[in-house]
Design a protein around this nucleic acid. Structure first.
Length: 312
DNA sequence: AAATTAGGTTACGCGAC
DNA sequence: GTCGCCAAACCTAATTT
């Protein structure tokens, strides 16, 4: 294993962010994330076996260097050389009299990389995906998926006639959904240059053409994120989750926005557990209006036979 | 804070253009 | 691709309990 270096919290320990979840190591994705709120504490702790070698007699000391992981997030899968700034390959700054030469090298380096239009498009798209992801706290693993989707979309010529940004946003949206940590179209649209309508339309095409198995968004998938925002006790969250499951089984929520169901379930769970949150609180944390929360929670209470025999 | 009400907006599938 | 249409779900806002 990559030695447990640096600042990072270890897998298994409680999440420093939400205090509720546990940190889990995902070797396939090479990151440590919170299983509740999705906080990513450590990324790129890649250990790709074959590269193991000793640097014991390296003049620079035994720094644990390895080959960088292949990444869908870079247009050349992270393979390419990187030449910019005013430092050489070892990070040493370049003397001023050789700067012109360096700049020339950088110029040709760029040209060789971006010669083909598709490559350049890909690069901008992936940058866009990273930019949006940063605003939305999207785990790196999901970004990778989004990158792959975009790549596939590009290969199928789905970009023609559509903007790069719209396909990038759609890819990210799709990746979030297939990864089980959905964000709503609104949330994507907020950080995208493209409006929600457009993203939705492009998403439909992309999802269809790529043959993505798109499970409908369940209210369940919103619970952890919302609970985290409301800073709820884990048992309260669990209770809300139970309500949601019952509601889904009882088919009282079909056709309803899954967000609203999750919001209502959380609201009920809060009250029952004596951890009161106002409808306004829940509304702000979930983006569902108070009116809708009321409507949902009345339905849930009625169909699940929940009784409020006490008042806080 | 919560509930109610009224009125406007959106998403969606579908066919027609 | 856009328009028009539909109904249901949602929203905003004002008001009441």
């Amino acid at each position: 294993m990559a030695s447990s270096t640096s600042r990072g919290e270890e897998a298994g320990s409680p999440c420093p962010e939400c205090k509720v979840g546990r940190l889990v190591l995902d070797p396939a994705r090479a990151e440590v994330t919170c299983d509740r709120c999705g906080l990513v504490t450590r990324e790129n702790l890649i250990d790709t076996g074959p590269d193991w070698r000793s640097f014991a007699d390296d003049p620079r000391g035994s720094s644990p260097e390895r080959a960088a992981p292949l990444s869908s997030l870079q247009h050349d899968y992270g393979f390419g050389t990187v030449m910019w700034g005013s430092t050489d390959a070892h990070g040493r700054s370049v003397s001023s009299n050789s700067m012109p030469q360096l700049k020339r090298m950088q110029k040709w380096d760029r040209r060789s990389k971006f010669r083909r239009g598709t490559e350049r498009n890909l690069a901008t798209a992936l940058t866009e995906i990273r930019r949006m992801s940063a605003s939305l706290d999207v785990p790196r693993s999901v970004q990778e998926v989004a990158g792959r989707y975009y790549r596939s979309a590009a290969e199928k010529n789905l970009i023609r006639g559509r903007s790069i940004d719209s396909v990038a946003a759609a890819s990210l949206y799709a990746a979030l959904r297939t990864s089980g940590v959905p964000r709503s179209l609104e949330e994507i649209a907020e950080v995208s240059k493209v409006d929600r309508r457009e993203i939705g339309r492009v998403y439909k095409v992309v999802a269809h053409e790529l043959g993505l198995t798109l499970a409908p968004v369940t209210p369940q998938s919103y619970i952890p994120r919302f609970a985290s925002r409301l800073t709820l006790h884990p048992e309260t969250e669990a209770l809300a989750l139970a309500f949601v499951k019952q509601a889904v089984l009882a088919e009282v929520v079909s056709g309803k926005d899954p967000k609203s169901v999750a919001a209502a379930a959380l609201y009920i769970a809060c009250i029952l557990r004596g951890e009161p949150r106002t409808q306004r609180d829940v509304s702000e944390a979930t983006g569902v209006t108070e009116v809708t929360i009321r409507n949902r929670y009345k339905e849930l209470v009625a169909s699940l036979g929940i009784t409020f025999d006490f008042k806080a």
